[in-house]
Write a protein that binds this DNA or RNA. Structure first.
Lengths: 211, 211
DNA sequence: TGGTGAACATACCGATTCGTATGTACCATA
DNA sequence: TATGGTACATACGAATCGGTATGTTCACCA
């Protein structure tokens, strides 16, 4: 492997690359939050995980709260868009796509989904009653997520795949809630089988929407 | 109001009543956990809320963890039994009872259900990946809860109220998960309307089980 | 090429908070 | 009625952890 030109032009990347450093911290913070929650996340652990020091962290983020907000706005939002919104928008059979997602979460996310749960729901349950900044950010995320699913269902309805009398917004709300609930139950049971059992119920509901 | 004989015989109750003191602490701890989570609960706050001192708390509980466990085993379990299991067992129309619960959570629990969420699910999401003791205790609680709903559905099935081919255990799993999810979404949105929208979806699912 | 600011590193402070050590009042019992 | 144990109160220890103050290195540019 020879160095690409772009790498030569960004040779400083090796010693100094603030953008990379920032995303490194964000990623470590995301993982720590996913595992231990926001309150359980320790800045010292994040720093240690990156191999950096506290000086670097506080150079890029004014405090723990701002780091937490950035994780929501950048990392978690990116995951939602990449895993849910973009595939749904690109799909020609949106309902089938949703059903596939629900039925293959272990394949999509790995064992983490059972071990640590859904990052969005985790943070929402922990922080929304404690910190209004987290709540509004996560609420926006949920709205985008819900809107994406809603549009998918509307498209499925327009194509005749689902019954015409269903309320796409209500269904989207319920699907997200049920999904978060299933993952939560499976997380507490630490059981992938429990996840499948529960997801089967949701799939049954989704199938019942078909014409 | 004159003092009852029992009160005379337990006159020491006023100055010394360890059982009452213990449940006083448990109740204050439950409320603090419900509001701020287990990690967010401060023993000083619990002590202040009871009007007691730290000496009293550590006389009845060896440490914070034991207090948390006792809240699960005694307070939360009691609520589940009182609100869900007993009414379900006594009901002559279990499916209608479940639907009624889902549709009237605000009346049953007050605004707390939207403001602070479901105590069981809150604790499960926060603590199950961090503390095996919490996880197993909450898992047991979920199992009892699920079994209660399962039996209710089996009775409904036996009476011909729901379709004969449905899997009562799967349905019970999904109902609890969906319910927890709905409350969680509503909590994050801080919206009773969101709760009703979401609960409507669950009710629609439950109605679809009917013969 | 030297200086200026960004990008980090190092060392430390201070507040929060769980837990403990010790003291005291009350009550049952011998 | 003396006494020992239960049921608390009070004061303090100690560690964790977010945050800061200060030092140092690097890159860019006049």
């Amino acid at each position: 492997m020879t160095a690409k030109l772009s790498e030569i032009h960004t040779a400083r990347s090796v010693s100094r690359d603030p953008d990379k450093t920032r995303s490194l911290i964000l990623d470590a913070a995301f993982q720590a939050i996913h595992r231990q929650g926001y309150q359980g996340m320790r800045l010292d652990d994040v720093v240690a995980a990156t191999g950096l020091t506290k000086g670097a962290l506080y150079h890029h983020f004014p405090n723990k709260q701002a780091l937490g907000y950035a994780v929501v706005d950048e990392v978690i939002r990116g995951i939602i868009e990449q895993v849910w919104l973009q595939p749904l928008e690109a799909s020609t059979d949106p309902l089938a796509e949703i059903i596939y997602f629900v039925g293959h979460m272990d394949a999509l996310f790995g064992a983490r989904i059972v071990t640590f749960g859904c990052p969005v729901n985790n943070l929402a349950q922990e922080m929304s009653p404690l910190d209004e900044g987290f709540r509004t950010r996560l609420d926006k995320l949920y709205q985008e997520w819900r809107t994406g699913i809603q549009h998918a269902i509307e498209r499925a309805r327009a194509s005749g795949a689902v019954r015409s009398e269903i309320d796409a917004q209500k269904v989207a709300s319920f699907v997200i809630a049920a999904l978060a609930g299933c993952i939560g139950i499976a997380k507490n049971a630490q059981s992938l089988e429990q996840l499948k059992t529960c997801a089967d119920g949701l799939i049954g509901y989704l199938e019942s929407l078909r014409t």
